[in-house]
């Protein structure tokens, strides 16, 4: 029966048949291993979620519980109430955070992709030096660097503006280096062929290379989103109406209502948006890899 089926459509093999030596048992073993390790990874996060909805009287039970009998949203309500008492409406902080996060993510993906393409695939004078500087910048770590950044921003009159939160985050050496490394494995022949067809670098970059770099691009987007979402900018922003959500949530959790459940609730609120973005971005990668075609 199966013979006649494959006989009708011999072209469409199942994806797993194409790969060498896949045994079903092996795949199941790998799944079980990942599951066991995964449970260990998730436990603390599960605990964070549980404690965020635990009522106060269950907090100090012995032995500590991994679940809660009467889940409550009190911790979230209290967090919201404290934030509601501030001078600026809560929605303003949300808007600030969303704006900063989207701006950083989009700008970094656009700027760093173009720069990474040139650094990986164009042999221009200065290429080697810039590549070396990128790696050095990644390794360099100094406690006065923020001070120096502050001085630069002050000279550019950026202090206490949104640009002080956005632009330094856009210029991330990490995102650029990730893209550069990924683009290094794009076959030169593909770019040469496009050049012969009369395409300029800009076209090659956006039409040919970047569509094939979805995995790295989405990974960079995840890093950018996550980094930008957690920006507090304590020293460069002092106007209450320009503060971001993490800044005020941390203030509320640590100073306003110092209670463990509230700390957890605050952590959960800050945790959810990056996770949602992560799921969207990773699903994107899966979608595109199904029909991409880099051929050497």
């Amino acid at each position: 029966m199966s013979e006649s089926k494959t006989g009708k459509r011999p072209v469409r093999l199942k994806a797993s048949n194409r790969r060498a030596g896949r045994k079903h048992a092996g795949t199941v073993m790998i799944f079980l291993l990942l599951l066991i390790l995964g449970v260990f990874m998730v436990l603390p996060i599960w605990l964070m979620l549980v404690n965020a909805v635990k009522p106060v009287n269950e907090m100090f039970m012995f032995p500590p519980k991994w679940y809660t009998l009467n889940p409550t949203l009190d911790n979230f309500k209290d967090t919201y109430r404290v934030l509601g008492q501030m001078w600026v409406p809560f929605s303003r902080y949300v808007f600030n955070s969303v704006f900063v996060t989207l701006a950083v993510t989009v700008l970094q993906c656009v700027f760093a992709s173009m720069a990474a393409f040139c650094l990986a695939k164009v042999d221009f004078p200065g290429n080697k030096i810039i590549n070396a500087i990128i790696v050095l910048a990644l390794l360099y770590n100094s406690n006065v660097i923020y001070l120096m950044q502050y001085i630069v921003m002050a000279k550019l009159h950026m202090i206490n503006t949104m640009s002080a939160l956005i632009f330094p985050a856009v210029a991330s050496a990490m995102g650029l280096y990730l893209m550069r490394q990924s683009m290094a494995s794009v076959p030169d022949a593909m770019i040469e062929a496009a050049k012969v067809d009369g395409a300029g670098l800009f076209t090659i970059c956006w039409r040919i290379v970047i569509p094939n770099q979805k995995p790295a691009l989405m990974t960079m987007a995840i890093f950018a989103f996550q980094g930008a979402w957690n920006i507090t900018g304590g020293s460069v922003i002092y106007d209450e109406s320009l503060k971001t959500l993490p800044t005020v949530i941390q203030q509320a959790a640590s100073a306003g209502i110092s209670r463990q459940g509230v700390t957890m609730a605050a952590a959960v609120i800050l945790f959810v948006p990056p996770v949602l973005f992560f799921i969207i971005a990773q699903s994107q990668v899966m979608e595109t890899m199904a029909h991409s075609g880099i051929k050497d």
Partner: peptide
């Protein structure tokens, strides 16, 4: 350099920000 001016132009936005907020602070530090 002239042949590659498109490449320099494409790198300009990132490199400008990178120089301002990473390279200069590093050198100053």
């Amino acid at each position: 350099i002239r042949q590659n001016r498109e490449a320099y132009l494409m790198m300009l936005p990132f490199m400008l920000l990178f120089t301002l907020f990473t390279v200069i602070p590093v050198i100053m530090s």
